[in-house]
Design a binder for these strands. Structure first.
Lengths: 347, 347
DNA sequence: TAGGCCCTGGACAACGTTGTCAGGTGAATG
DNA sequence: CATTCACCTGACAACGTTGTCCAGGGCCTA
């Protein structure tokens, strides 16, 4: 074990980990033999293996995967960038991605973009610098050309929940347009003619699609959307509350509201609960306990776990070498009727 | 730029990334100069810097952090192991940890233990092999001696939500005992004498603590707990449903139920909603929309985000070199009264 | 004009691992 | 007894980066 003369390595210091070299020295074998034992490669006598195992045990050795990654090129990790880790909608998606990753022996690195395109890019590029094998992104921005060199370099990328901007890539979406159209049509079917739409910021693809679905359903029913019936903006409770109140206090108020996502629905339910006049409501995204409210909240449910699972499977399919053209999968939504959408107009 | 004669590097192949060497060659400068530019180190003429930047741009170079990590020793990443990424309780915790990590320039790698000690260990050790700088763990197991070599080697570790087993380590908890005692006392204060407790598996520390709190409150009130009033087990809805039904259909049924966590509360609410006789309920953990149910669900709320934030701050404090003895922080809980705990016994 | 200093740039080793390849030992065979 | 062969084992280079150290050139001063 000749050491560099300039920097002799004395006792293993606190905070310094033993390496294969240390294990090899202690076991009295070569470096490569340790590597073989650690990786379960064949060609090691049981006796040698035992000696190595003992040395590993005694030193508390654990392979340094950073070095391994450097050597092998693959990191066995994937990155997931979503909007907000704390949003209950993304929990199941996150978990589903993790399960698929786990079944492929990969770890999951994740972060929140907080709906900020710059933060999204920063995060994505940091993940690329870590050389994640693949990326699953819920995009916040609308221009993903910054990813082109990465994708060309071999970073598999799948967009989920919303499509990529100005770039071709695998995408997995829910049918926002169809779901929203069906949800709105449901209100129409129950006699509503004056229906409001409260959604997320119009720059967000799903928000725009849901608005489009609402418009389509209204048009199908031959209804003209009056000014003041559409409100888009952040899902901040104050903003949404004001939007609801404004619609209901108008001289000629709406009799039903379509809520563009789970955050909006929650606030809308809260505002409506404080009002005497009953207003019909259908929300996009299912929410917990929706069935126990009075009336139960009718929703257009999407399957967040299926979104995550499908995206992750697509990703690993790519990592296994699939070289087909980018695909776009659209998962269906499901209307769950619970009462709030079945109220008939009272005026 | 003498290349190894055996492996000449032709055109950069698809799937192969340019390195600093490539950038240096293209810019006509030395390797270290590229490194200096990439890391914003001083000592580079503006003109040289410009040439290097152009080469970086042209080649689509991105620093390989794996190599950097290997050289520097620190990975600027931390690991978070929780029970279930999809559980709404852990969403805010996860997000809070992420925010703190982000403010320290670190990435977050995370995974679910699924309440399986073996899976927890597997995950934790995989993170150690990645050489995460630190770990935040919601433990599933009760023996963490396997972490000793890692901690000795310098992996900062903080346990959150539940304490570590057979090992000294920083810990951040909610006051499960106190919260549960207060919640139960609240039911007693409203006239209840026959109070059931439905909780998670008794091997889980928080579950045991909450049970202890319930027992303490009952004892304080001079009440004897009768057989059948305590039910512990998984939070599987079927299991919980049966537990509730059994308690309520007993010859001498309970008049109030204390639910040990959010999963239990949700199921309990659902069962109670289908019954005519009113039963009081207090749940541990706040749940969304609890205020809108009829009656509103009284809960003992813990601050999941504060748990995560406190743990992460503790972790980075350690990483900054703090060498104090392991600390234990217990965060208070808060009783939020909404009606369901204020029902008085009907019999 | 000579001496010395500062500033820029580059050669080189090292981080810990794995792939390649060659050497060495023992048993089986002619 | 010599030879072949299979099987272990280890030396060495390479992965891409950063820290150390030295060389050379320009500029200021005496």
């Amino acid at each position: 074990m000749a050491e560099s003369p300039r920097r002799p390595r004395p006792e293993p210091r606190y905070g310094t980990r033993p390496t294969m070299k240390d294990v090899a020295a202690r076991a009295g074998v070569g470096l490569k033999t340790v590597s073989r034992v650690v990786n379960g490669e064949p060609g090691v006598t049981p006796d040698t293996e035992r000696r190595v195992q003992e040395a590993i045990e005694a030193l508390g050795f654990r392979r340094n995967d950073s070095a391994r990654v450097l050597r092998k090129g693959r990191t066995a990790s994937i990155g997931l960038v979503i909007e907000d880790l704390a949003d209950p909608f993304y929990g199941p998606l996150n978990r589903a991605v993790e399960e698929v990753a786990r079944s492929h022996g990969a770890l999951l690195i994740n972060g929140s973009s907080a709906e900020d395109p710059e933060r999204e890019q920063e995060l994505v590029l940091a993940l690329c610098a870590r050389r994640v094998d693949g990326l699953i992104v819920v995009p916040a921005g609308h221009d993903h050309r910054y990813l082109e060199p990465e994708i060309k370099a071999g970073v598999a990328t799948v967009f989920v929940d919303r499509p990529a901007g100005r770039i071709e890539a695998d995408t997995v979406l829910s049918d926002s347009f169809g779901g929203s159209r069906d949800g709105t049509a449901h209100l129409v079917a129950h006699g509503h003619r004056r229906i409001g739409f409260i959604g997320d910021q119009s720059t967000i693809h799903t928000a725009a699609e849901r608005l489009r679905g609402y418009r389509a359903a209204m048009a199908d029913a031959g209804l003209v959307i009056e000014p003041g019936w559409i409100s888009l903006g952040t899902t901040d409770p104050d903003r949404v509350r004001e939007a609801v109140v404004t619609m209901l206090d108008a001289p000629d108020p709406v009799t039903a509201i379509f809520a563009g996502n789970n955050r909006v629905t929650v606030t809308a339910v809260r505002v409506l609960a404080g009002r005497s006049r009953s207003v019909a409501l259908v929300g996009f995204d299912d929410i917990e306990l929706a069935d126990l409210l009075d009336p139960g909240v009718t929703v257009v449910a999407q399957d967040a776990a299926a979104l995550g699972r499908t995206a992750a499977e697509r990703l690993f399919h790519r990592l296994d070498g699939a070289a087909e053209a980018p695909s776009r999968v659209v998962l269906p939504t499901r209307l769950i009727t619970r009462g709030s959408g079945e109220l008939t107009p009272s005026d």
